[in-house]
Design a protein around this nucleic acid. Structure first.
Lengths: 191, 191
DNA sequence: CAGAGGCATGTATAGTCATACAATGGTGAC
DNA sequence: GTCACCATTGTATGACTATACATGCCTCTG
């Protein structure tokens, strides 16, 4: 069945976005044409506005998603619950939303409900510098042996998640150079 | 202040995205340059990847937002949820027993069993300075970006709870009697 | 010190998207 | 019919974004 109406096309777009990752309108164009629907990129641009589509990160790339959709891809992608398997890397890729440092703490945000799951994986990683973890609903607090270890850990976690490096906290306080309590720009190891 | 470090720049980007609508990297470029930070669009593109920024609808246009941070509120609005602040007020009135500060932590006591519920409300308030919350049974621990932010948050929570400046807390605030302001404008909304 | 290697950034460009304008195809009023 | 009106889409294009490659700055090592 080939819906040639506007509404039909949009419904199909919803289905597609709920089912697979679509990075660009060109890609969507191609998928639709495989289903026998021929439109131009401009039309898709309008459709996506109309559907309220957003672009969310999946790895490094932005992909389309439609909030409030049945199998809400916005949430699902962020949750990544389907594929969560036993490796920390996998967990981080799927579940680590942000990781920030505050002194000897690392705060990891996860999608709702995923914190305990991720915390468990982190625990079992056997990092000596991790004194312990506490997990709420969507937040994992990791207590490390020190600020430097915290930073190292964040870098590591973000790397695992495929997101690059840490962003230390800076107070949005225009007071000057003293906003560096928790930050420090060296990576020297000292005994 | 003009943070010329990479981390500083990214922190500033987070602040900006949490505070105002940014439609394009060019726009962000301009805002940053007003703050004395000169980089190219390419760098911003990379920053936004690292920060996990997404593009959500605001009206018809896609604007940048960073999930899991203060701007999260924007995300929620875009996702069709809302109700943020008044909800928090109600919860605080009812459930907040005491709020105390310890450095970059705020400890909130609630009636037995209510901690998770209140923590969720606090989370959803979208305060940019809240890194995360962890709730037990009758205690919520809020991790903020710094001691100063902790104090501001406590003031705010107590105000919401209708306890004003009454202090179940004694904490050394060198700021004097005017420590009431909460220099955060959480009423940014655009059609 | 020299040289190697890594990282952050700029440059140039290809890829992607939104939109003004025009064309097309209904619909109803007359 | 035919005219006016409105909605939908395509065309063309400028705006926006990502990325391969080059450059310069560190830090480390010898």
């Amino acid at each position: 069945m080939i819906p040639q109406t506007r509404a039909g096309r949009r419904q199909l777009i919803l289905d597609i976005l709920g089912r697979q990752s679509v990075r660009s309108q060109g890609e969507l164009l191609e998928i639709l044409s495989r289903d026998g629907i021929e439109v131009t990129q401009a039309t898709l641009s309008r459709d996506l506005v109309e559907l309220g589509a957003v672009k969310i990160r999946e790895g490094k790339a932005l992909v389309y998603a439609v909030p409030g959709l049945g199998g809400d891809r916005t949430v699902r992608v962020a949750l990544g619950l389907d594929e969560a398997s036993s490796h920390l890397r996998r967990q981080c890729e799927e579940l680590l939303v942000t990781a920030r440092v505050s002194a000897n703490l690392v705060i990891v945000r996860t999608p709702p409900g995923a914190a305990n799951y991720l915390a468990s994986a982190i625990d079992h990683a056997g990092e000596p510098d991790i004194l312990g973890t506490i997990a709420g609903d969507d937040t994992v607090m990791i207590i490390t042996s020190g600020a430097r270890q915290s930073r190292a850990l964040v870098s590591r976690l973000l790397a695992l998640a495929g997101r690059g490096r840490a962003d230390p906290i800076h107070e949005p306080d225009p007071a000057g150079p003293s906003s560096r309590h928790f930050d420090d720009d060296t990576n020297k190891e000292s005994p």
